[in-house]
Structures are given as structure tokens and as C-alpha cells.
Design a protein around this nucleic acid. Structure first.
Ligand SMILES: Nc1ncnc2c1ncn2[C@@H]1O[C@H](COP(=O)(O)OP(=O)(O)OP(=O)(O)O)[C@@H](O)[C@H]1O
Length: 782
DNA sequence: GGCCTAGCGATTTTT
DNA sequence: TCGCTAGGCC
């Protein structure tokens, strides 16, 4: 691999970045300009420089002297893959990882001076919540007065240094809560996610000798998506590279989307003054997307006021315009997306569906499942968040760390051992009085008589057995042993439920994933056998990684489903960005102008993932929190797309044509007046699929399967009319609803223009609907 | 102690 | 709609 090989296929600026190996370097550039490509080549270049021949490395530059950090697991995985492609085997020894994993690596080795043991556990948000609830209980604060979730948010913001300026209640209990929270974590030998970075910064600040060792190890540091660093991460980098000054960062201020967890744009904007003498390289050529996609994305992000304008051009042709697709509701939207995939006849892996919130994946998953199309759901932490998985892991955590009170409380009575609230209260009392862990208190109480005593004795003996097993058995066997010996598996097997069966499956998956964890070498490239190291490594992985690595049905032949946040840095030939309606994207919680601008950047990120084709879709109505349908308003971001780059958009009609009473909405709901004026990009997808299944594509599903049309609720022979005036919907009137059938209006409130009706339906009970949107008809009785 | 249910409240993005 | 909690009942 010669010098030329690594700069081949790069433009002049990119090549310059790849060969600028020493000193601070900032690559500031727009989406798809090859930033990540440059970073991976640069890693390869460093390895090449360190090679002295015959696969050996010079002592002053070995693969493990290189550190590359990303923000998400997905991004780390992707970068690792690319580096490995370039340099092969030795890539394994380069540390390519998230900030959080990197910090765990440091703390597992050096945390002791801070007062934690090296076998510390990481508390995820669920554990955090349990601690907070316990603290609130201790302080006799009702969870109704102060939501544990709110407390967690505040703790996180506080630890991220973004709590300044928050409006504080008088007699604020927060400082006390925080104090007790921290004490509990410390006592349990635990750290939360935020601590991981903060503690490393503290450690390195207080212990120069330890810092020096890490500086010696990581002589070359690279950061992808630098615009998303928060103050703690900034300090981490600043400390680590203080001696070597070999810090290369790449980023794009338009893609800053983690303000909510403290990301500070100033980090990237002030890089040059922070690191004097920094080389600055700007990349202005986009290699990813067709012209129209780029124009659309640029047109949107241009609306941000707090923004530095930058150049981004492409040599690619315009390609198809971005296609706007409107659908009746989220189910129809998902069906539409899937139908288009089928029609395009590309390999499934070329499609990605990108959404704002995780919950939106469900409709798409269902549509894909109906059509037997394989898909991969990225993130959402689905696997390790399952109850049964967390339970088994809690046993393992308690084996790893006897002080993990949260883990103990989770499983001490699962399966039941006759230890109810009273017994647990006694256990806590015993522990507090003697200043010992719950595990130790259980042992003491195990020596007492009575039902609780027996329960604690059983539990203690069980945990002792599990601890012994942990020393002798390899990890997968240990996991299996825990599931069996604890009675957990037996409990599941005794349950006839379908759900219990799938839980058994998941426990088996966990055993497999333990085996997979063993195959992974540890930090220093050694394979680990039985004992605490393997267990810790496994537990870290479970907490830090978004998902189990290979869930069944995965592979490269599947459609990818992910949030816009997780999509950052990735690319796909065809992208569907769904749910482009106000309150969803931009999200309802984004109120301030700054928040809206971040949403806009998020849209920019989502749009720029597409290489060839971009679809933006929106449902006309959406289920709201109380389960009823709300009409939607098309996302403002759609109107910001330049006209010439967008198809399917009718600027004159407020963009969201919908049914209105008096215009003859059909009895199956669906398209109303505006649709007749030709606005929607598509015929309604429901019911009448306008194309035939492919006979050519090996990928095509036999026939698009859409969500079943709703049952026809209209009783035969019923006479109805669509009233010309909303005033006709009076209390006592009988109406026909397209989904719920006939009913009688019980109550009318809201405004005259937008009356809200409480209707008692024959099909079951009262529902509240808006007359304007419900497509109601008046029943005429002779 | 353990199970069931009525009532209530929430409601992004990630590690 | 969903998930959690408090409270009631066996
Ligand atoms: N000089 C080049 N010639 C051809 N293709 C290139 C060149 N540089 C990058 N590419 C391609 O352009 C695409 C985008 O590159 P990359 O993912 O590195 O961009 P990026 O700047 O990191 O994007 P983003 O900020 O959106 O994550 C990739 O498919 C990459 O292979």
C-alpha cells in the first residue's frame, strides 16, 4: 500500500487532510463531502507511517496509539468497518469507539483514585430512575408532586453543565435529591452515563501521572462529528492531546443535533483559537447526492438564522425531484412507502426509512412485516431493554458487584420468594442501620425465622452459588446457569402465554450474545476465559451498546429503519423521511427558535442521507395521545424546499387537503375535498393498489399487502345525509361515524366553528370527536 | 404476600 | 393508547 493508494480517489483538499498527520487539524465541511472518508484514510495513513516492514510497527507509532471517537455505536461500527477494509487486521488494534466506551476503558483501569472500585457498574436510565424513586421515597416526596423522569432530566442537564438559567421552584428539593442520588450511586459502586465522561475529566485533572500514561498511549486522536461535542467531551480531548497536539476533528455546524445533551457549537467554531496553529481544511464538493436532493436540503437549512453560510456543490446530475407523498394516516403512509419500495425493485438494503421519533417505526415495521420484507431496526435499545433480559442481567450484575443494590431490588423476589414490601422494607432498614449493602443485609436476615427469613436465606444461598459458578464457568454457560438456577426460566416455562414463550427465546438469545461477547477480544486484544473480566465486558456491552449485534433475520438484505439522529454519517441510495408534519418533525417540544433551528438541522441531516432518491411523506391525520385522530399540518420544512426540486406539493392549498363536512366525505373516511383538486401525489393507497406485482425482481414481494380496510359499519338500508352546516350536529341527533358506526350525540362543546361532540356509540361507549374532522353523517329516521 | 384493576398522566432525540 | 401506581381483594 503506497502513499498514492491512500490518497487515490480523493480531491486535492481531501488528500491534503489525509497527509496532514501532525498537529491540530480541523476539517469543516458540508454533508457528503467525504469527511468520514478522509478520517478513515488518515487512520490508514498513520498506520502506514508507523509500519517498518514485515507487518511490524515502529515503537513510536503503533496501531493502538491511534484513537478515533464517534458519538453513536452505529457510527463507530461503520468507521471500524471502513478502516478494516483499508488496512485489514491491524485495524482491530486501533481504538475506534464512542466517547462513552472509551471512557469506560480508561475508568476500568484507573478509576480507583476517585474512590470507585474497578468493577464499577454503569447505571442506565432505568437504573437511574429506580435510584431516583428510592431517593424521593426517602425524602417523602410523592412521585405525583415531582416526576422521577423530570428529576432525571434535571440531573442529566446538571451533569452536562446545561442547567444554568433554569427556573427553580422555591424551596427547591433538587440539591438534596442530587446529593442522595450521588451517595447511592457511590455506595453501589456505580456510575451513570454522564459520569463516565465527567469522571475521566476529573481523574485526568487530578492525577497528572495517569493522564500522562494515556497521552502516551493515544498519541493521535481523531473525532468524527465534532460539532456535537459537549463541554465534558471537549475537556477530555483538550487534556488528552495537550502534549501531542495531534487532534484531528471533522464536522459540520449544520449537522449539530445534540444540543439537548449539551453539545456546544462553539467547540467547532472556535477550534482555531483553541488550538493555535491548527490546519483548517474546507471540503466543498458533495460526492453523495444527486443535485435535487442537495438543493432541497440546502434550501431548508438556509432558513436558519444562526448559521455560517457555506459552499457545497456537486457534479452529479439533478436526478428526480424530491417526491412529496401524502397519505390518509400513518398506516397508509407506511403502506405507501413499502409499495414504492416494491415498485422500485431494488435490493432491500438500498432503502432506508428515517423518522423523528422511535415510536414512528411501528407502522413501518407492520407494513414491512405484512409484505414479508426483511428489515433492520437500528437503535431503540430494544433487546437489552426487555424485562427478562434486564432481570437476568440484574442477577449477573449482582454477581459482578455485591453492592449493586438496584440490581438486587430488581430480582430479589423474581421469581417470587415470599419477599414482599414488608420484607424489603426490613431489608433496607437492616442495610441502613449497619451501613452495609442489601446483599449483606439479606445474609443477616437469612438467619432469622419466619417467611422472610427463609426467603432471604434461599436468595443468599442462590447468589453464593452463582458467584462460585462465575469463577469456574465460561460466560455463556454462566448466563444459562443463572437463568436455570434462579428459577427464572422455570417461571417463564410454567407460563402458557405466548409472551412467556418469546421471553424464553430472548433468554436463549442472551446466552448466544454472551458467546458472541467472548469472541470479541478485550481491550488489549486478548481473548478472555471465565472470571470477572469477561463478565464485566459483557455487562458493559449490554449497557453501552444500542442493540444486540445480530438479531435473527438481520443481514445486509434488509431495509434499514432508524431515527434521523442515528442516520447521521450514513448514506443510502433511496431514503424515505416519514412523518413530515408539524408537531412531529419539527417536534412539538421544539418551541424556541433555537429548538426549531436544531430540528431544521435534523431535517438537513435526514435529507442528505439520500444518494439517488428522496421521498418525504406525511400523514393527513395522526393518532394523538388520547388515541383519537388529529388533523395534521404539513411540516414547514416542506415549503422550504425550493420549488424546482420538489414534486407533489401544492403551494396554494395549505398543503393538507382533507375531508370537511358538506363536501361529501365518503363513508370510509379518507380523501376529502382538497384531494379532488388534485393535490396529493398519489392515489389513495388503501384498498386499490394501482400496480401489479413484479414478475421480474427477485426481491419483489408477491403482492403488496396493505392494512385491511375498516369494516363497513353502515347498517344496511340506513339513510343518511352529509349536513351543510355544523349546527345540525345537535345533542340528541343520531349520527353515523365511518369507523364506529351509529351513535347519539350526548354533549356538544368546543367552539361553534370547531364543535367537539361526545357521542354514545352503539358499538361501545362514549367517544369524543371533532365534528369538523370526523366525517360524520346525520342519520335520517323516517 | 401476591394479583388484579381502576384511574391517572405523559408525550424527543442518545450513551 | 399505553404504562405506571395506588389501593383493594383473596
Ligand atoms: N473524492 C471522492 N470521490 C468520489 N467519492 C467520494 C469522494 N470523497 C467521498 N466520496 C464518497 O462520498 C460519500 C460521502 O462521504 P462521507 O460519508 O465520507 O461524507 P461525510 O462528509 O462524512 O458526510 P456526512 O457529513 O453527511 O456524514 C461516500 O459515499 C464516499 O465514498
Amino acid at each position: 500500500m503506497g502513499t498514492d493508494a491512500l490518497t487515490q480517489g480523493l480531491n486535492a483538499e481531501q488528500a491534503r487532510a489525509v497527509v496532514t498527520l501532525d498537529g491540530p487539524l480541523l476539517i469543516l465541511a458540508g454533508a457528503g463531502s467525504g469527511k468520514t472518508r478522509v478520517l478513515t484514510r488518515r487512520i490508514a495513513k498513520l498506520l502506514e507511517r508507523g509500519t517498518v516492514g514485515g507487518g511490524a510497527f515502529a515503537p513510536w507509532l503503533r496501531p493502538w496509539n491511534v484513537l478515533a471517537v464517534t458519538f453513536t455505536n452505529k457510527a463507530a461500527e461503520e468507521m471500524r468497518r471502513r478502516v478494516e477494509e483499508l488496512v485489514g487486521e491491524s485495524a482491530r488494534q486501533v481504538w475506534v469507539s464512542t466517547f462513552h466506551s472509551t471512557c469506560v476503558r480508561v475508568l476500568r483501569q484507573d478509576i480507583e483514585p476517585l474512590g470507585w472500585r474497578r468493577d464499577f457498574v454503569i447505571y442506565d436510565d432505568d437504573d437511574q430512575l429506580r435510584v431516583i424513586k428510592a431517593v424521593l421515597e426517602e425524602l417523602k416526596i410523592n412521585v405525583k408532586e415531582l416526576a422521577p423522569n423530570a428529576v432525571r432530566g434535571r440531573i442529566d442537564r446538571f451533569k452536562n453543565g446545561i442547567s444554568a438559567g433554569e427556573v427553580l421552584p422555591r424551596a427547591d428539593p433538587f440539591p438534596r435529591i442530587l446529593e442522595l442520588y450521588e451517595a447511592r450511586l457511590k455506595k453501589a459502586n456505580a456510575l451513570d452515563f454522564n459520569d463516565l465522561i465527567n469522571k475521566v475529566v476529573q481523574l485526568w485533572t487530578e492525577q497528572p501521572a495517569i493522564l500522562a500514561r494515556w497521552q502516551e498511549r493515544w498519541k493521535y486522536v481523531m473525532v468524527d462529528e465534532y460539532q456535537d461535542t459537549n463541554p465534558a467531551q471537549y475537556s477530555f480531548l483538550k487534556l488528552l492531546t495537550a502534549e501531542s497536539r495531534n487532534l484531528a476533528v471533522v464536522g459540520d455546524d449544520d449537522q449539530s443535533i445534540y444540543r439537548f445533551r449539551g453539545a456546544d457549537l462553539r467547540n467547532i467554531l472556535e477550534f482555531e483559537s483553541d488550538f493555535p496553529g491548527a490546519a483548517v481544511i474546507k471540503l466543498e464538493q458533495n460526492y453523495r447526492s444527486k443535485g435535487n436532493i442537495l438543493k432541497a436540503a440546502a434550501g431548508v437549512v438556509r432558513n436558519n438564522k444562526a448559521r455560517k453560510d457555506k459552499t457545497l456543490r456537486t457534479d452529479a446530475e439533478d436526478g428526480e425531484p424530491v417526491q412529496l407523498v401524502l397519505a390518509d394516516d400513518e398506516t397508509a403512509e407506511a403502506d405507501d412507502v413499502v409499495n414504492r419500495m416494491i415498485r422500485m425493485r431494488r435490493p432491500w438494503s438500498e432503502y432506508a426509512v428515517i423518522y423523528r421519533t422511535n415510536a414512528q417505526s411501528r407502522q413501518v415495521e407492520q407494513a414491512l412485516t405484512r409484505n414479508r420484507i426483511p428489515y433492520t431496526l437500528v437503535g431503540g435499545r430494544k433487546f437489552y431493554d426487555r424485562m427478562e433480559i434486564k432481570d437476568i442481567l440484574a442477577y449477573l450484575r449482582l454477581v459482578n458487584n455485591r453492592d449493586d443494590d438496584v440490581a438486587l431490588l430488581r430480582i430479589v423476589n423474581v421469581p417470587t420468594r415470599g419477599l414482599g414490601d414488608k420484607a424489603i422494607a426490613g431489608l433496607k432498614l437492616e442495610a441502613t442501620t449497619h451501613g452495609i449493602s442489601l446483599r449483606a443485609a439479606a445474609r443477616t436476615l437469612g438467619g432469622t425465622a419466619g417467611r422472610a427469613g427463609t426467603g432471604f436465606a434461599t436468595f443468599t444461598l442462590l447468589m453464593d452459588r452463582l458467584e462460585r459458578a462465575a469463577e469456574l464457568q465460561p460466560l455463556p454457560e454462566l448466563v444459562q446457569y443463572v437463568a436455570e438456577e434462579s428459577g427464572y426460566l422455570a417461571m417463564l416455562l410454567a407460563d402458557e402465554d405466548e409472551e412467556a414463550k418469546s421471553r424464553v427465546e430472548n433468554v436463549n438469545e442472551l446466552v448466544k450474545s454472551a458467546a458472541a461477547a467472548l469472541d470479541e477480544p478485550d481491550d488489549d486484544g486478548n481473548l478472555v476465559g471465565p472470571g470477572p473480566m469477561a463478565l464485566r465486558h459483557f455487562l458493559d456491552r449490554a449497557t453501552l451498546s444500542g442493540q444486540s449485534d445480530e438479531l435473527p433475520g438481520e443481514g445486509n438484505g434488509s431495509v434499514t429503519l432508524l431515527t434521523a439522529h442515528l442516520a447521521k454519517g450514513l448514506e443510502f441510495p433511496v431514503v424515505f423521511v416519514i412523518g413530515l408534519v408539524e408537531k412531529c418533525f419539527p417536534h412539538a417540544r421544539a418551541e424556541l427558535e433555537e429548538d426549531i433551528e436544531e430540528e431544521r438541522r435534523l431535517a438537513y441531516v435526514a435529507f442528505t442521507r439520500a444518494r439517488e432518491r428522496l421521498f418525504v411523506t406525511a400523514p393527513r391525520r395522526r393518532r394523538s395521545l388520547d388515541g383519537w385522530f388529529d388533523d395534521t399540518v404539513l411540516s414547514r420544512f416542506i415549503a422550504e424546499i425550493p420549488e424546482a426540486a420538489l414534486a407533489g406539493f401544492d403551494r396554494d392549498h395549505g398543503n393538507m387537503p382533507r375531508a370537511r363536512p358538506g363536501f361529501g366525505a365518503g363513508s370510509l373516511g379518507g380523501f376529502g375535498a382538497g384531494a379532488a383538486r388534485g393535490t396529493p401525489a398519489l392515489p389513495p393507497s388503501r384498498g386499490s393498489a394501482p400496480f401489479s406485482p413484479s414478475r421480474f425482481s427477485p426481491n419483489a414481494a408477491p403482492k403488496p399487502v396493505v392494512a385491511p380496510a375498516r369494516a363497513n359499519v353502515r347498517p344496511p338500508g340506513l339513510r343518511t345525509m352529509v349536513p351543510d352546516n355544523l349546527d345540525r350536529f345537535t345533542v340528541g341527533a343520531e349520527v353515523l361515524h365511518p369507523m364506529l358506526g351509529t351513535g347519539t350525540i350526548q354533549q356538544r362543546d368546543g367552539t361553534p366553528a370547531n364543535p367537539r361532540l361526545t357521542i354514545h356509540f352503539a358499538s361501545g361507549g362514549p367517544r369524543t370527536v371533532y365534528a369538523v374532522t370526523a366525517s360524520l353523517e346525520l342519520v335520517i329516521r323516517p
